[in-house]
Each structure stands twice: as C-alpha cells, then as structure tokens.
C-alpha cells in the first residue's frame, strides 16, 4: 500500500494499492474521524482483495 505507485513498481512490488498521500497514506485529516476510518477500511479491504487475487506480474489494484 503506497502513495507513489511508480516507486513501488520500480522496486519490484507485485500487488500495489495506491493510497491517499505521503504523510498520511491511509488517512485524511480533513475528514471527520468516522469518515476517515471508513476511507481506511475501504483501502484495507482493497488490500485483502488483492491478497486473494492471483497475479502473474506486477499489478496495481486501483479500481474502485
């Protein structure tokens, strides 16, 4: 899970989830706490989904 996808690709990561921003990849301080946690959950669920997906090459899971 990383904000700058091209860097993750260049270092060889195979399953990549684009995240929010460098200082707060899995959060957004401008949201209220509940909404921020919902955003985080959404991203983590995408990560769990990626873990359950077979991939043959470096794959960026960026869809909604």
């Amino acid at each position: 899970m990383a904000t700058i996808v091209p860097i993750s690709l260049s270092v060889g990561a195979n399953r990549i989830i684009p995240t929010v921003s460098i200082p707060h990849p899995l959060g957004n301080p401008t949201l209220d706490p509940a909404a921020e946690k919902q955003l985080r959950r959404h991203l983590v669920e995408k990560a769990l989904n990626a873990l359950q997906t077979d991939v043959t090459e470096q794959t960026v899971f960026s869809g909604e």
Partner: peptide
C-alpha cells in the same frame, strides 16, 4: 479532488 504529487519533483 486531491492533488497528485509530481513524480519528478518528488
């Protein structure tokens, strides 16, 4: 809605 960091600047 969120600004995307510029890769070369980064």
């Amino acid at each position: 809605g969120r600004p995307e960091p510029d890769l070369l600047s980064l």
